[in-house]
Design a protein around this nucleic acid. Structure first.
Lengths: 112, 112
DNA sequence: TTTAATGGTTTAAATATTTAAACCATATAA
DNA sequence: TTATATGGTTTAAATATTTAAACCATTAAA
């Protein structure tokens, strides 16, 4: 049984921030850097500036957007902040489910 | 076995247009209207303007972005165009797979 | 305590996106 | 043929986003 359209609509609104965050190529680059972090201990702003070619305030700005979207978090150690993509990411799971629901809807269209 | 990070990166770039298209609330409203189309025969620009409160050129502009993202298509009948979310949507499936890959990556982080 | 390093915030400028007005094209109806 | 309806395109203005410069705060080392 399909989800009703208004549930789909509110899920969509709920995921707006994440989708917007994921749509920017600079933020994609930051995410890729974070995912590729071999140390698995998080990356500092300084490391991300050299990896992405962005200024520190720009990286900081994008990290804030990614944090607000609940995709990225950080851990403070002394005066250093280590950023990472949240493991067991709730928002990503919600997005995955949402996309599944939309696909169900489009397939329903096909049948009629 | 995880996808390597550069494959993930190129998938991400490939999905930029779709993610950007999905991130805008006006376009979300258009998509919701299209998914909720009871007739299953597509909606005209005029129907979308009244449903979303946007002007015709604005709707037309957003529809173009959605078409470029390969999420929406249309069918011409005489001088009328009927827009719909593409059934069996390839891009949505790609996005679903991509999100799954990213989740795998973040879970790998958790383990170490 | 002074200095250096990390990094967040504010503000203003640059850039990109969104919108409406005005226009053009096409197809049907009168 | 002459309206009328649908809707796409172009352009300029409004709005939002992104960026860098300048600044502030905190921590650790000298």
């Amino acid at each position: 049984m399909d989800k009703n359209i208004s549930a789909l609509k509110s899920d969509f609104q709920n995921l707006s921030g994440l989708l917007q965050a994921l749509g920017d190529e600079k933020r994609q680059e930051i995410i890729i850097q974070l995912l590729g972090d071999e140390s698995c201990s998080g990356l500092q702003v300084g490391e991300l500036t050299s990896a992405t070619g962005l200024s520190r305030p720009a990286v900081s700005h994008h990290l804030k957007i990614l944090r607000d979207a609940e995709l990225v978090d950080y851990r403070s150690e002394a005066r250093k902040n280590f950023y990472y993509v949240c493991p067991k990411n709730e928002k990503l799971t919600q997005l995955q489910n949402f996309i599944g629901d939309v696909i169900q809807y489009t397939d329903r269209m096909e049948e009629s």
